[in-house]
C-alpha cells in the first residue's frame, strides 16, 4: 500500500512498520494476539502516514494494545478511551483514530462515553474485545456476561441479563456496527477496512477468547463443529444463507426473523432475506444483531453501515463558515469590540 510522508514522497508501509519493540504480555493463546496481527495488517492499508494514526485505549488486558502498535498511542484510564479519543480527533481531524476497549471498559465504567461517541457519530473506529469477562482483574463478570455465569464475583451465577453490544450501538444511533471473531483474521481484516472506509463512528465487536477466565465462552459460535451452522455472514446485497450445507437461511416472517431450510416446505433461495447494510431503519439490523444460539446463528460481518454527517466534520464546517464571515479575526479585535471607552 502506498502512503505519502511529510514531503509527499510515496512510502510503502508493511506490517513491520507497526510492530513495536515492547514485549507483548498477553497470556499465550489469548485472542488479543490474533487481533494485534490483524491491525498490524490493516494499518499499512489505511492510506495514512504512520504519524497520522493514533491508537487510544482505556484499561484492561485489551487496552494494553497501544503499547504494541508503533504509532502515536494513548493508553488512558478505565472506561475513558472514547472520551479521550474524541478530544484527539476534534483537535486534529486529519488523524486516523482507533480505539481499543474491553467489554468492561466500554460497556460498564465507560458505557456513557461509548454511547455518546456513537450517538455523535465521531469519525473514529472502535474495536470492542468482547470476552464477556473482566480479564485484567482476574475474572469478574461484566455487563456482557451471560445470565447465570459463575465468576469470582458471582459464585452463585449472575442474576442479570447482559448487554448485546450490537443492540446497544444501534440503539444509541450507531451508523456502523460489525461483528467478527478474533481468530478469523482474514474476515476481521476485511471488516476493519470496511470500518476505515466508513465516515463516522464504526464499532466492531470482536468475539475474543480469554483463555484464562472465560475460556470457550464463544465456543458455541466459533467451535469447528458448529461455526458453519452458528454464524451467518452478512454481506451487503447477498441472501443471508448459512450452514454446512449452505441450505439454511433467514426469512422475514411477519415482523420476526426465522431460520428456514432451503428445499424444505417449498422454500427457495428467493425467500431468503437479502442483507441490506445501508437500510436506515434500524429494525432488521437490530434483529440481526440480537440473534443468539441456539435458536439462531450469530450475525458476523458488517450488520449496519449507513451514512450520516460526522460530528468532527460538522465542527470543522461551522468553524470555516464562521471565520469566513466574521469581522473579528483576532483576540485583539474581540477585546476592542462592543462597548469600550477611552481614558485620556
Amino acid at each position: 500500500m502506498e502512503n505519502t510522508n511529510l514531503n509527499n514522497q510515496v512510502v510503502n508501509l508493511t506490517k513491520e512498520d507497526f510492530v513495536c519493540d515492547q514485549i507483548v504480555k498477553w497470556c499465550p493463546g489469548c485472542g488479543d494476539h490474533a487481533i494485534l496481527k490483524v491491525l498490524q495488517d490493516v494499518f499499512p492499508q489505511l492510506g495514512k502516514r504512520k504519524e497520522d494514526i493514533c491508537v487510544v485505549s482505556g484499561i484492561g488486558c485489551s487496552s494494553r494494545f497501544p503499547h504494541y502498535m508503533n504509532t502515536y498511542g494513548f493508553h488512558s484510564i478505565h472506561g475513558r478511551a472514547c472520551a479521550i479519543a474524541t478530544g484527539v480527533k476534534l483537535a486534529n481531524p486529519n488523524l486516523s483514530v482507533w480505539i481499543v476497549s474491553g467489554d468492561g471498559d466500554c460497556t460498564a465504567i465507560g458505557g456513557n462515553h461509548f454511547i455518546h461517541a456513537v450517538r455523535r457519530n465521531m469519525d473514529m473506529n472502535l474495536l470492542l474485545f468482547n470476552n464477556r469477562i473482566y480479564g485484567m482483574t482476574k475474572g469478574q463478570f461484566s455487563p456482557c456476561t451471560f445470565r447465570g455465569t459463575v465468576t469470582k464475583t458471582s459464585p452463585q451465577g449472575t442474576y442479570e441479563d447482559p448487554f448485546n453490544v450490537g443492540e446497544l450501538v444501534i440503539g444509541a444511533g450507531g451508523k456502523f456496527f460489525a461483528r467478527g471473531v478474533d481468530v478469523n483474521t482474514k474476515e476481521l481484516t476485511d471488516i476493519c477496512l470496511r470500518a476505515k472506509n466508513h465516515d463516522g463512528m464504526s464499532v466492531i465487536e470482536v468475539l475474543q477468547n480469554c483463555m484464562i477466565f472465560s475460556n470457550g465462552v464463544h465456543e458455541n459460535i466459533t467451535g469447528k463443529d458448529v461455526r458453519d451452522d452458528m454464524q451467518v455472514k452478512c454481506e451487503h446485497g447477498k441472501p443471508l444463507i448459512f450452514g454446512k450445507e449452505r441450505n439454511k437461511g433467514l426469512r422475514l416472517n411477519g415482523n420476526k426473523l426465522e431460520v428456514v431450510t432451503i428445499g424444505e416446505n417449498g422454500i427457495t433461495e428467493k425467500d431468503i432475506l437479502v442483507h441490506d447494510e445501508k437500510e436506515e431503519n434500524t429494525g432488521i439490523h437490530m434483529m440481526l444483531a440480537h440473534m443468539m444460539p441456539p435458536a439462531f446463528p450469530v450475525a458476523i460481518g458488517v450488520i449496519r453501515n449507513v451514512e450520516a454527517p460526522t460530528y468532527d466534520d460538522c465542527l470543522t464546517d461551522v468553524i470555516e463558515r464562521e471565520s469566513a464571515k466574521s469581522n473579528i479575526k483576532t483576540v485583539d479585535d474581540l477585546l476592542n469590540s462592543g462597548t469600550t471607552w477611552d481614558i485620556k
Partner: peptide
C-alpha cells in the same frame, strides 16, 4: 456528556 468526558476529551486534545 459529563465532567469526566470534559476533562478526558481535553486531555486527548492536549496530547494532539
Amino acid at each position: 456528556e459529563d465532567e469526566i468526558a470534559g476533562i478526558c476529551s481535553s486531555l486527548g486534545a492536549s496530547f494532539a
